[in-house]
Design a protein around this nucleic acid. Sequence first.
DNA 1: TGGATTATTGCAAACGTTTGCATTAAATTA
DNA 2: TAATTTAATGCAAACGTTTGCAATAATCCA
Lengths: 353, 353
Amino acid sequence: MSKRTEKTIVDIAEELQLSVSTVSRALNDHPNISARTKERVKKTARKLGYRPNALAAGLRNNKSKTIGLIVPRISMFFPATISTIIQNKLQEFGYNLIICQSNDSYEQEVALVNTLYSARVDGLVVSTTLYTTDFSHFDVFRDNNIPLVFFDRVPKDYNVKVIKGDDYRGGYIGTTHLIEKGCKDIVHISGPLTCCLYSDRVAGYKSALQEFKLPFKKSRVFYQELTKENAWQTCEKIFSQKPYPDGIFASNDTTAITISEYCRSIHLRVPEDVKIVGYSNDPRTEIVSPAVSSVDQYPGMMGERVVAVLMEMINGRQTAVPRYSQEIIPIQLIERQSSAGKVKAGKKKLSLS
Amino acid sequence: MSKRTEKTIVDIAEELQLSVSTVSRALNDHPNISARTKERVKKTARKLGYRPNALAAGLRNNKSKTIGLIVPRISMFFPATISTIIQNKLQEFGYNLIICQSNDSYEQEVALVNTLYSARVDGLVVSTTLYTTDFSHFDVFRDNNIPLVFFDRVPKDYNVKVIKGDDYRGGYIGTTHLIEKGCKDIVHISGPLTCCLYSDRVAGYKSALQEFKLPFKKSRVFYQELTKENAWQTCEKIFSQKPYPDGIFASNDTTAITISEYCRSIHLRVPEDVKIVGYSNDPRTEIVSPAVSSVDQYPGMMGERVVAVLMEMINGRQTAVPRYSQEIIPIQLIERQSSAGKVKAGKKKLSLS
DNA sequence: TGGATTATTGCAAACGTTTGCATTAAATTA
DNA sequence: TAATTTAATGCAAACGTTTGCAATAATCCA
């Protein structure tokens, strides 16, 4: 057991004939320890190879200097980007980040919340499962007044701090853009409605159609997990019979890109025959040809806001009283090749105000 | 302070008129606690909303049930995929994972090692910075016999457990493939040689050239951080004067994809005029056109091996004595459009044994 | 029925910090 | 110089567990 080499502050104290309290205070730069003592203590700390034990300090202080993060998966562009930012930002504040993935499983999410509570994280950041509609597993955090922030995929009707993208507007803008480019029959491929993200975007899609007096047809909206496989299957369904849509608005970029591939496979031209808009502005949209238009969600801004809000809560500037508050991060449409120009020859441009 | 609601095992003990030790053992299913008592304890634990305090347990047991992971960045495909797998796998074993990014900064890496040590992680997994050549900051772990595993970007000459891809072979296979497809003047774009990954691949590249009696020219190898921007610049250099190379082997896919874009921009045809092979088999290689050939590194296998080895070390089956041991994960070339067919008309196929 | 074995439970120390309060030493003032 | 203030240090409890050992209760066998 070489563990016997672990030095503690009592070793330092003994070596210097000081009390442990003095050593502790010296290491923490407590004001009423003399400069000379601080020097001596720090020096022998280095000499002995002393490493503070964060567990012990955490136990005593009832804080772990650790934040928990739960996301569906870190292999997807948007959560990955946000996680990166959160992690880097927290590092600046001296916090560690425990990143966990629910893999979009409700049960896993519940389990993770509990282990992160046991780990006594000082705060929890979460983007929920596609299927989380009951949020009571977060009560432990909320009721114990431990900072809790949701982002992107956030609860509806749960009294808590929420930071989300402007999904309604995203749905609206994406659809409007296609209409302005001349599309008259726009399919929307959405995620499951249990997730607020998608219901908001669908609402935006609807209101855009309505505003431009285009009919909303139930058969033109698809609800599915937004995987490549599902996208391909849905394409097969869509293009199994005419009339073909002249625009498709997909609620993520994996889907948008797959649609584009499918169109090529059946010799439909993008954007001439079908225009496509995706969501998230995944960098893949740029390298694919034609490049795919997409709704950017400013992940950087969102990540920074998450950390800022969290830190305010931790430092008590923000009232930690569980109070619903929603912060909306703007979105922006990035126009690319996949939705360029006019609908196929013969149709003329809608004149829009 | 609603923190006063935190229940501990002594609350359970009081409620049941038992000793804390009995409660502790009951909760941990210790064999010599009667079934009846266990039942009662667990029931009131639930009733009181008791949550174990992992910090306290960790302090007492000298283990945190937490693993540290340091990667350059989690936004890159390969480390992201591995992190995902490691995280999911560890979850099965009841371990949390603290994911940290060094952002390819040596100083940050050093700092992270120290905070993870302070957090008393039960093990550390790391893929180093591009520029880490001094590994002494890992001594704390090695010397205290705390499981330490390196993967992908691993140390040379540091006595420790290492799991890496077969980069020499990857370099060899990638180059050989281009040669077999008829290339005679192959550029190699490599990362900095401080990183074992790249030096191994360069070695593979060299030996392939040698084997096929092609000259190795220093001017045909470039060493740089493998970013998009650098790739573009290097392309400008390469194609600023003739003769153009007829094959390019890039040490990552971002670079390979950018090269392909550059070629299109100057109206060079891929693969007819230039053939391209990348590294890592990033999914982007598939959606780009022409699809880019790449060397797959089996991230799944690597991730699983990392966790398996780590668990063996933690459970003491593997000797934890710091002993260098290297495990090589195979690679596989995935041929795609970017390196298909023959070199431009007029050249005839090399007949290879 | 009594002694021995076995099954349960309890006591108390330990893990490494931090911190309120008490104490001592040093500096200041009258 | 004595009394008072200020600066620096020490004592001991506390954070919530776990665990070796001791103690008690229950069971068994002859």
